[in-house]
């Protein structure tokens, strides 16, 4: 077992894990943070998106050993003090959520985008979601949700 220290949702965290385990496995099975979902384990669906040092990545493709000293955000970090994040609010209101399994990953991709680019064009939104699969919505209302979130965040 290895000891790995990193910043998890703003809290300095130390965990015991084999450094070759995937970040996704550690989040779900060691940290009990099950909001990050597993849809494929091959980096194709985006259900396990997390934000690593400001960039949205697939947790299934990252070894936990690579987390040392880095800053990690997961879906659990967006909901604080009983208040939904504006992106979460926008996803709910615009009907972007159906079965909900892709939702955390979608919201994380949207957050990484809006953190870096508060006023994205539709093409930039589509590009930011280009590694996130959804089988329910056809993406129309997800794209609308990101537009709405940008508006809410600007207010």
């Amino acid at each position: 077992m290895d000891t790995i220290s990193f910043m998890l949702n703003g809290v300095q965290t130390q965990i015991e894990a084999d450094k070759n385990w995937t970040l996704l496995y550690v989040l779900r099975e060691v940290c009990d943070l099950t909001g990050t979902k597993c849809g494929c384990s091959t980096g194709d669906c985006g259900a396990c998106k997390i934000i690593l040092d400001g960039v949205a990545k697939n947790a299934c493709l990252i070894k936990i050993g690579a987390l040392e000293g880095r800053r990690l955000e997961t879906i659990e970090g967006l909901y604080c003090d009983g208040k939904l994040h504006p992106i979460q609010q926008a996803f709910i209101e615009s009907g972007a959520i159906q079965c909900g399994f892709c939702t955390p990953g979608m919201i994380i991709s949207a957050k990484a985008l809006l953190d870096a680019n508060p006023n994205p064009t539709d093409d930039e939104i589509i590009k930011a979601l280009s590694n996130n699969l959804c089988r329910c919505t056809g993406y129309v209302k997800i794209i609308e949700a990101v537009r709405m979130a940008a508006r809410l965040l600007a207010e």
Partner: peptide, 23 residues
Amino acid sequence: ANVPIAQAALKATGQMMYTADMK
């Protein structure tokens, strides 16, 4: 009326418990 899906807040926050999330 345009009604968001039930339990949408659970799904948006990652709190929705799917089978693979249960221990």
